[in-house]
Design a protein around this nucleic acid. Sequence first.
DNA 1: TCCTTAGTTCAAAAGTTATTGAACAATTGT
DNA 2: ACAATTGTTCAATAACTTTTGAACTAAGGA
Lengths: 118, 118
Amino acid sequence: MTLPHPTADQISLSNVLAVLGDPTRLAIVRYLASKEGVPLNCSQFLDLCSKTNLSYHLAKLREAGVTRTEVVGTSRLITLRRDDLDARFPGLLDSVIAAAVGDTALPAVGASEIEVRA
Amino acid sequence: MTLPHPTADQISLSNVLAVLGDPTRLAIVRYLASKEGVPLNCSQFLDLCSKTNLSYHLAKLREAGVTRTEVVGTSRLITLRRDDLDARFPGLLDSVIAAAVGDTALPAVGASEIEVRA
DNA sequence: TCCTTAGTTCAAAAGTTATTGAACAATTGT
DNA sequence: ACAATTGTTCAATAACTTTTGAACTAAGGA
């Protein structure tokens, strides 16, 4: 089973911006970027909103072409579509992420986590 | 008379993205960028929508901190707040504009213009 | 002064997006 | 087979955004 994703050339700039223009989704993208390479499952983001609502936001991100969602067993593994976004809109993702990193207004993912010491 | 603008530090990333995530407003920003340095008045954008609606979209851009609107007589002169946006979100405006330039899905400003030949 | 030009405001309507809860589906572990 | 885990779908509602038209303001000519 695989979920529908737009092809790279179907990714629309205004749609990407609109989808990123939501604090919950921007927080998700920021967190995905901070763990880039590591596919995360939905439950990582349950701090942000209810399970149903999260499903909705993650679908928006996927349908806009911002994320890729792979079905693995009962989980969905979510990654940023950096390759396609960089190809389509060079520099955009990096500047959004850089700006989001310093954004204290965004909700934090993993706020209620047991602290892991160095 | 002067219109209310957010200060640079009041400009919110998710709000800027949300505001740019509308094709009409993105078209306005693209056009402003193509004429950067030249302050434009509202009537330039009447191709895009009705006068009232334009007033609404331009207010959104101004309130988000994307544009600066200066009142001069009966006109409003609109410019991009490049300095503040670049300071706040380095690279963001440039990558959005670069992506918007190649975006054929966006409505064109000045589509119904008398062609000026080289 | 009167008319035009440039743009705003207001309230209503139309449309869209976000949020919720209950019910569902699929996989995994026992 | 059963229960738990992981996530989706659906319909309803709430909340917001966009669009409209009519009425308005303020400045600039004639």
